[in-house]
Amino acid sequence: MSEILQEKSAKQEKPIKKRSFIDWRYLWYQLTGSPLTMVGLVVILLILILVIFAPIFATHDPNTIDLRARLASPSADHFFGTDEVGRDIYSRILFGGRLSIAVGFGVVIVAGFIGTLIGALSGLIGGWFDTITMRIMDVVLSVPSLVLIMALAAALGPSLVNAAFAIAIVRIPYYVRLSRGQALLVREMPYVAAAQTFKASRWHILRWHVIPNILSPIVVQATLDLGNTILLAAALSFIGLGAQQPTAEWGAMVATGRNYILDQWWYSGFPGFAILLTATAFNIFGDGIRDILDPKQNAH
């Protein structure tokens, strides 16, 4: 045992008592030391509040047509202007955000859950199960993901649910690969060897040892994925494979607004900005969380 290592671990012993394996206060302390991550977090929280309480913050009904106010420019009445049938763009962005963010979380949770389970099992069991799983994942990964998502979404029929489903399937291999690699490391730990001496089942080792110990890189991956998924869902809607008119959805709004981009910049501009802001905020926050949870990865 290296002396320095022990001294470091002694250093990490903090005066406060912890009752959970995530030390929230320490996490908060680290967050305050990283302003960019804090900015990401604040933006995410703001977006979430605006979107969750959309009915309160919205100034108009997102689907009410008002032909007298077609393509109105931003004003006190319509913050972000109106579209070609006079719907309030600001309100549509708030309600559209509900869909985009729900798709983001839904996809990440489904893909993350299934992917982690397959990957952890694959790493833990090894052998032919591992070989076959990983070859299947390699096949999925070898096709460019956007092409695969488009093909899947088109085959399933254009709708936001199908688009989300397609994205989830394509994202699964990333989680499988990540969690398998981590599971291979955990499998070699002495506490797993100890569990084997008292004949613990594979399920027990998976449940108590592998999953809890591989969770943090997966949470990081999931946070980074949220931004990308929102972007992908918007892209699919943009090309007509996702949300359909008249649903308020960011990608679909940008797509329609494209026709008016020269004269009515606000129509596609504001939804586009909403996509950019949300995706960037999640990416910045994810990057920051990764540095906090796994400082080694970022060591120079």
Partner: peptide, 30 residues
């Protein structure tokens, strides 16, 4: 009837389990 105690107490205990779970793991595993 046979158990083992390892050399390195850092890595032979799962850091994500509370002590009472670690101690009784041989029981609730089976």
């Amino acid at each position: 009837a046979m158990q083992i105690v390892f050399q390195d107490p850092q890595s032979s205990l799962n850091t994500r389990m509370p002590i009472w779970r670690i101690i009784t793991e041989p029981i609730f595993a089976r």
